[in-house]
Design a protein around this nucleic acid. Structure first.
Length: 549
RNA sequence: GCGGAUAUGAUCUAGUGGUUAUGAUAUUGGCUUCCCAAGCCAAUCACGCGGGUUCGAAUCCCGCUAUCCGCACCA
């Protein structure tokens, strides 16, 4: 069986310390992977570059919230319902179906119990639907517990803090909040290695906008850049500006973050030829989204894989949390000048209401203050199903002037959501190249120096004490200056280069006998194998310049 | 979750109901080596897990787990 690129990468990743299957000594569990020493560094580098784009370039703020998430939060967000699918298996043809997809009207569960659901494949009657919930559930505490789930996305941690973050942002929109962390999904059958995990790393940004103004302050700086778009039929190239003007992308904000995403992915080492944005059809939108573009990356093994979703979640989440928590999470759209309005208010006279209605008086007061009361008109309130006449002397109608500073609204959210593990895999796949050297398989990971876990390999040409001393000193100096290195004096020089090529180290420095006299070393470039003679004093700035460009 | 196939060092692999289980690559140490996996010597490392059959199981049987291929599902 010839290995395909996925096998080759996973083999290399395990052998060299990028990725290990989790719990392997106990047989392993599908959907869980460990990052080894190089994988962890690679992941850090990807995340830190991501931070440069979102925290520095786009000026977002970063927070960090628990992965264990209270039941109520995910109930409000719709995840407890939307992530529970009733599934039925056909005994005859051995296929399984999502029950909801088979029953158009009525209660699907009831229809199934009554034997009214037939297999669309073979016509057999389908029975015994069972729920499949994609969230890991847990309990908080012992004894008197509260229900919780491991979060399926980091976003809810941001939404539930919106009112605090809005104040932190000094009540100005738009502003963005990001979180990098773990998400969990109890996938029925994860089979695509690191592409589909049960515990995975995500980087999400929730950018809050006034729904009446989804323009982005930096839009002008990106408007002439080209987006690679795919509308499920053909691939197209549009400028950011044109995509919005022609309505291909609904608003500036979406288009801006698509552009930011594209630049990040190309910067991090994704092959531009294997990149596109694909728009979700109406039938595939998540329950919270009104428009969604996926950044898809092409894998030789898996085809086009969605690695970033950029969704317009509209007001969905914050509105849900306002409704179910009762918290004030509105934003305020300030008027240019405060408006003065005459307001009629009903003021209940508790001195009369109390003795008259006893324990119902409180409820009556609340109701009175809500309804639109007109003077001299009899009021009949419906209190817990009982109709009660309210005498006119029990309340007063007061007219006051109020200043209104602005109008309250629920902000809209644009959400770029990145699957870090998928991106990491795609970087490996797109960077992988192989050939032969001395009749042996030769592999190079052409990682972008920005993300490469090791930036520089340092070797004494031969095991001579004098060379070793110079090399070790240089190694230590570079690491002290923040450049990750790998010191190696074992084996032939070619073997050492090969080891570094295989883990994607962009530069190798060799100390030879001339170094003793001329205080210079050779710096070898991974992709060209060309060498530069560089003064030891200047090595740091030489490498720095290459790494940051 | 269903059907089929598979499981031997880090990697690829040979193997048979019967001593101490191949070979290669890699790794480690030594010798040699002045720029791209050279050579020589030595060393470390494996039968997925659990049960059964048997005098004896890595080999045969069953279960589990994982992986691969279909189906189904799916940010």
């Amino acid at each position: 069986m010839p290995q395909d690129i996925f096998d080759k990468i996973m083999t290399l990743a395990k052998r060299r310390g990028f990725i290990y299957p989790s719990f392997e000594i106990y047989g392993g569990v599908a959907g869980f992977y460990d990052y080894g020493p190089l994988g962890a560094q690679l992941k850090n580098n990807i995340e830190n570059l991501w931070r440069k784009y979102y925290l520095l370039k786009d000026n977002c703020i970063e927070i960090n919230t628990p992965t264990v998430t209270l039941y109520e939060v995910l109930k409000a967000s719709g995840h407890t319902n939307e992530f529970t699918d009733l599934t039925v298996d056909c005994k005859k043809c051995k296929q399984s179906f999502k029950l909801e997809g088979l029953v158009e009207k009525g209660d699907p569960e009831k229809e199934a119990k009554e034997g009214k659901v037939k297999c669309p494949n073979c016509g057999e009657i389908l029975k015994n639907p069972y729920p499949v919930n994609l969230m890991f559930s847990t309990k908080i505490g012992v004894g008197n517990t509260r229900d919780a789930f491991l979060r399926p996305e980091t976003a809810q941690g941001i939404f539930t803090n919106f009112h605090l973050l809005y104040r932190y942002a000094r009540e100005k929109l738009p502003f963005g909040v990001v979180q990098i962390g773990k998400g969990y999904r109890n996938e029925i059958s994860p089979r695509q290695g690191i592409i589909r995990q049960r515990e995975f790393n995500m980087a999400e940004a929730e950018v809050f906008f006034d729904p009446k103004d989804k323009s982005h302050p930096d839009f002008d700086s990106v408007k002439n850049k080209t987006l690679f778009l795919f509308d499920n039929k053909k691939e197209m190239k549009f400028s950011v500006e044109k995509a919005v003007k022609q309505g291909v992308v609904n608003n500036q904000a979406l288009a801006y973050y698509m552009c930011l995403t594209q630049e990040f992915l190309l910067d991090v080492g994704i092959d531009p030829e294997k990149f596109r944005f694909r728009k979700h059809g109406d039938d595939e939108l998540a329950h919270y989204a009104t428009e969604c573009w996926d950044a898809e990356l092409y894998s030789e093994r898996f085809g086009w894989v969605e690695c970033v979703g950029i969704a317009d979640r509209s007001a969905y989440d914050i509105k849900s949390h306002i409704e179910s928590s009762g918290n004030d999470m509105y934003a305020l759209r300030k008027f240019d000048e405060p408006k003065t309005v005459n307001v009629k208010k009903v003021v209940a006279d508790m001195g009369k209401l109390g003795p008259l209605f006893k324990n119902k008086a409180g409820k009556i007061k609340d109701l009175l203050e809500k309804i639109d009361v007109k003077k001299d008109k009899e009021i009949i309130l419906n209190v817990d199903g009982e109709k009660i006449k309210i005498p006119t002397d029990c309340y007063k109608i007061v007219e006051t002037e109020e200043k209104i500073m602005g109008e309250r609204f629920v902000p809209h959210v644009i959400e770029p959501s990145y699957g870090i593990d998928r991106i990491l895999y795609m970087i490996l796949e797109h960077s992988y190249s192989e050939g032969k050297k001395s009749d042996e398989e030769y592999r190079i990971l052409k990682l972008n120096p920005v993300v490469a876990p090791v930036k520089v390999g340092i070797f004494p040409l031969i095991g001579d004490k004098k060379l070793i001393n110079i090399a070790k000193k240089l190694d230590s100096d570079l690491r002290t200056s923040g450049i990750s290195t790998y010191y190696d004096e074992g084996g032939t020089i070619g073997r050492r280069y090969a080891r570094m090529d295989e883990i994607g180290t962009p530069f190798c420095i060799t100390v030879d006998h001339d170094s003793i006299n001329d205080n210079a070393v050779t710096v070898r470039d991974r992709d060209t194998t060309k060498q530069d003679r560089v003064k030891i004093k200047e090595v740091l700035s030489f490498i720095m310049a290459k790494i940051s460009s």
